[in-house]
Amino acid sequence: MRNAALLSWQPRLGRLFIYATLIAVAALYLIPLWVVLLTSFKTSADIRSGNLLSLPDVWVLEGWIKAWGTACTGVSCDGIRGYFVNSTVMVLPAVALSTLLGALNGYVLSLWRFKGSELLFGLLLFGCFIPFQVILLPMAQTLGWLGLANSTAGLVLVHVIYGLCFTTLFYRNFYQALPQEIIKAARLDGAGFFTIFWRIVLPLSGPITMVTLIWQFTAIWNDFLFGVVFSAGDNQPMTVALNNLVNTTAGVKEYNVDMAAAVLAALPTLLVYAVAGKYFVRGLTAGAIKG
């Protein structure tokens, strides 16, 4: 009897220990978010007097409204609203183009092999490992030649080029698992290069497209370096504006505004992950479609 009871208790204790540890670690991990969110709803006086972790005395949206509409980023004081739009206008075409081109690249490199295609893929892959900083100067020069310096189009171009290495890698490895015979069958059915791509290959690419979209959206939205280097003034993305907002202090530092702006800046990526996160994991583990 006693032995049986012991046996059933021991695993439960172990379970309890595991859960307690996990909850503690998760809580620790979430503290910054907690602080950021709570601070954004506090008044300046509340922040100065209170504890970092305490709940606001009064919940106010003051910081949020100011961050969105009237906070100063450098010389202008229109909040981050305009930059939010900038980022959106820049991110959408950059993500769409880099994903589509990556899909096309992957399609060619895995299903329409040619002499030297493996080498080309290797070189493209190499692009994933080039640090951002290395390409800043040559890229600035190139954008200047193209007449795209300090424009949204220029920033889109940079992100598309830099994103291609990753998107190509994703799609190429995904398409690698597609049976070559499907392509042969489609060719015999009379379909050409793009017909096969649009009608057969792309419809099969759901999981990997989810992965690529999330990956690219997160990377491009969160990018600061390219944004700060290749854009100026009114074209700057959200991340740069956030930096400017935090660094522009006229008198007292308004932590609630800074925090609200930070959450606003992070919101789109959080949203994307919340909506499509499960597809991300599924896409990464999916491997392939059976033929």
Binding site: P179, E181, I182, K184, A185, I200, L204, K290, G291
Partner: peptide
């Protein structure tokens, strides 16, 4: 084809 190569 041996693998049928149907369009999935």
């Amino acid at each position: 084809f041996q693998s049928y190569a149907l369009y999935p």
